[in-house]
Design a protein around this nucleic acid. Sequence first.
DNA 1: TTGAAAGCGATACCAG
DNA 2: CTGGTATCGCTTTCAA
Lengths: 335, 335
Amino acid sequence: MVTIADVARAAGVSPSTVSYVLSGKRSISETTRRRVHHSIAQLGYRPNAGARALASNRTNVVALVVPLRTDLNVPVVMQFVTATVTEARSHDHDVLLLTADEGAEGLHRVVASSLADAIIVMDVEAAEPRVPVLRELARPAVLIGVPDHPYELTCVDLDFTAAGADCVHHLADLGHRDIALIGPSPAVYQRGTSYAGRFLSGFRATAASRGVEADALACVPTYDGLRDCLDGLLDRRTPVTGLVVHNEAILGPLLSELAKRDLRVPRDISVLAVCPADVAQAQAVPLSSVDLPAVELGRLAVELAMRQLDGHAEPEVRLLPPRLTARGSTGPVVA
Amino acid sequence: MVTIADVARAAGVSPSTVSYVLSGKRSISETTRRRVHHSIAQLGYRPNAGARALASNRTNVVALVVPLRTDLNVPVVMQFVTATVTEARSHDHDVLLLTADEGAEGLHRVVASSLADAIIVMDVEAAEPRVPVLRELARPAVLIGVPDHPYELTCVDLDFTAAGADCVHHLADLGHRDIALIGPSPAVYQRGTSYAGRFLSGFRATAASRGVEADALACVPTYDGLRDCLDGLLDRRTPVTGLVVHNEAILGPLLSELAKRDLRVPRDISVLAVCPADVAQAQAVPLSSVDLPAVELGRLAVELAMRQLDGHAEPEVRLLPPRLTARGSTGPVVA
DNA sequence: TTGAAAGCGATACCAG
DNA sequence: CTGGTATCGCTTTCAA
């Protein structure tokens, strides 16, 4: 193994000089800098991460806590994860992956054993039990999602309340007076998942203010669950004319089922999804949608964590404004 | 921060004794062991990972390299990742996540800077460029997938050749003489992804030996791509009576499309999938399938890596035997 | 069965 | 602008 001493010897300087060349924490003459870099390249030197962490109290690692749940949208989670890794690497950091089943204990472990400098937590609940723990730990932390009481923690998320509102406005503007939200699985609501509740409240409030009749259903992501939802919404005196779907897993089944019932989109019924743009694009009927910016959220989470590591960053709740793109699955009500 | 010295002082022993209590590398009297454990609990001591790594040359971290590709099946990747983390934790290890875009350089980096003790690589290609690098690195490594030349590296995967064979046998046994494989995206074949080619060859060889007419198509995972495939397979003098689908993303669309063409499954056409059991189960028609044991593979990959770390484990290529479960989407040919 | 102390390979302070 | 060196917290030999 090549050590900093080897490099120093080869370059004819002291180890500390090599260290400073690498860290840039003090000025180095151009000539020595060159010599040092040359020796580093020559020898293929890489600083030992453990030694560096021990001496500097910095691991250059961020911990990322991912949910294990299968009722979440997996591709979205994966997009988020890869975006996080990519962004972390661009800040010269690595990512340590934790699963949520380790709970608060896992957070303790990572911090107490100095495995990571900062923590990013996905799948935040409204009454998030990890919030107090994260506060105690006093490490840079970023939550994806907004708990009811974020205290001094930094959070990033899509502005789901605004997204819910935008969806209603979009349909109301097209003349719809009877719409419905097909939301995530009941389990998601039951555990108080942050985004689900916020979307719902934006949806409800705006429906009220626009005078639109709006139903809201949780939908088990299976064919049977979907059929139950649709039965309730369509087999009645005034069937809904617009659907807002906040449940990625059933977009495909929904479109088949509508086709099976001879309902044309958007002529007979409008469909507006909340999902990543590429998913909306790839459906049998390209769907109008509010984009779920998983990649941008991952990027931003890391960036905010880095800012905290670089010193003074005020805790903040950063909500990305929703972007609604019409792709032809939503249209005016046909009388 | 609580250090080993603090614990030693509290327990009235030397630091080395604490270390040995923790590692179990020499015998300790029951009384001191108890005292030490008590102090550890009392003080909430956690060994510093960096210091430990520096002193022991062991990080207790395994690196996991995941693909960034979107043409792969994302839920399967995610299942694999979480299984890996879970199993690693049960061996007292953590997981450092790398993306494949760092390439061979990323592997070098992780090893040279002592960030991980072992490496697990997903999405292996037939002519895997990382194989020579992994050999040079001389660290425990496990490939998920089998390259053409694994040399001395350990590999785990489903036995896709056998899986391809089993699929043909299953349909042939039911009397099908005209079948087709709807495979992954052309891009997957083009880059020589290990599993795709192996499945195909098992499929072809068995079709030949059973005297079954067998087409094989790569399918772009979109509605248009799927329609193209189906057009070719169904609009001909002898339409296929059985489909083997090795492309998870189009299972849903396929079933809708068949319904649209008034083909009943399995009466008019049999459908046999290669995908995780839960995915097969969740389709509009529960699908007969060969299970893709992502969780078991993740678990096994870690186990084999740990074995290598524990000393002498011969390199091996471990192929899990396929398990075909009939769920009613495959049936006898109706004359 | 236990202790003392020499490293492990960096960083960063104190000097010059 | 550069060097010397104490230090980080733990493991592991060497000794008892």
